[in-house]
Simulated assay, not measured.
Amino acid sequence: MTLTVWFGFLLAAIVIAVTPGPGAVISMTTGLRHGYWTALVTILGLQVALLIQLLIVALGLGALLATSEVAFSAIKFLGAGYLIWLGIQKWRSPVVPLDADVPAIPRKGAFLQGILVNLTNPKAMIFIGALVPQFVDPAQPQAAQYLVIAATLCLTDVLVMSGYAVAASRLGRWLHDPRSIRAQNRFFGGLFVSAGALLAISSRPS
């Protein structure tokens, strides 16, 4: 992979990361309630799922989702259901002031939640499957190229998701009124449900 090609891929990776999606929502909600360091654990979970998706694409299995309506629908509805469940949980969250002693969620739970949010989004895998091969030179060793691609995707996504999480945690310092807490619970709950609904009615990218 030449430097010019890598810069092109970096630009594409930035656009993908900045575009709001379930990963951004889970990063913001975790950062808002539990702070950046717990959100970072969730963000690392997102990257594990991204690496798994990239590995699947590298092995050529991503084509199955692109061509099989059954496989795509199964993962799509699983992901949509999970996002809607997260939204309902957030909507029904108790109104707890952000300066109160809030028990930290287990790091393992935050990590697993990040993995599940990204892994149950088949459109992300298909998008990676459509994008990545365009930047891979078949005449060159592919393992090294995929390592560069994986590092670029993950580092870009960690930085962007961290930005979302930090912004949310800074905003959280101003939310002490119970009415505001309830409003933000329902706002983010609505975002999760909306993301799940959009995923459920989506079709395979052409």
Results as ranks from 00 to 15, higher is better:
residue 4 T to I: 14
residue 5 V to S: 15
residue 8 G to E: 06
residue 14 I to C: 07
residue 16 I to Q: 15
residue 17 A to W: 00
residue 18 V to A: 08
residue 28 M to T: 08
residue 29 T to E: 05
residue 38 T to V: 14
residue 41 V to D: 00
residue 41 V to I: 07
residue 45 G to S: 03
residue 46 L to D: 10
residue 53 Q to N: 12
residue 55 L to V: 06
residue 61 L to P: 08
residue 62 G to T: 04
residue 66 A to L: 13
residue 67 T to G: 04
residue 75 I to N: 11
residue 78 L to H: 09
residue 86 L to V: 05
residue 87 G to C: 03
residue 88 I to A: 12
residue 89 Q to E: 13
residue 92 R to G: 09
residue 95 V to Q: 04
residue 96 V to M: 10
residue 98 L to E: 03
residue 98 L to R: 07
residue 104 A to M: 15
residue 104 A to W: 08
residue 105 I to K: 13
residue 106 P to K: 07
residue 109 G to V: 05
residue 116 L to V: 12
residue 119 L to Q: 04
residue 119 L to Y: 01
residue 123 K to M: 12
residue 127 F to E: 12
residue 128 I to G: 08
residue 137 D to M: 07
residue 137 D to L: 05
residue 139 A to F: 15
residue 140 Q to Y: 11
residue 141 P to F: 03
residue 143 A to D: 11
residue 146 Y to V: 01
residue 148 V to F: 11
residue 154 C to W: 08
residue 155 L to M: 08
residue 156 T to E: 01
residue 156 T to Y: 00
residue 157 D to L: 12
residue 157 D to K: 12
residue 158 V to K: 09
residue 159 L to F: 10
residue 160 V to Q: 09
residue 160 V to C: 02
residue 162 S to G: 09
residue 166 V to H: 07
residue 167 A to K: 07
residue 174 W to F: 14
residue 176 H to F: 09
residue 176 H to A: 15
residue 183 A to S: 13
residue 189 G to S: 01
residue 196 G to N: 00
residue 197 A to C: 14
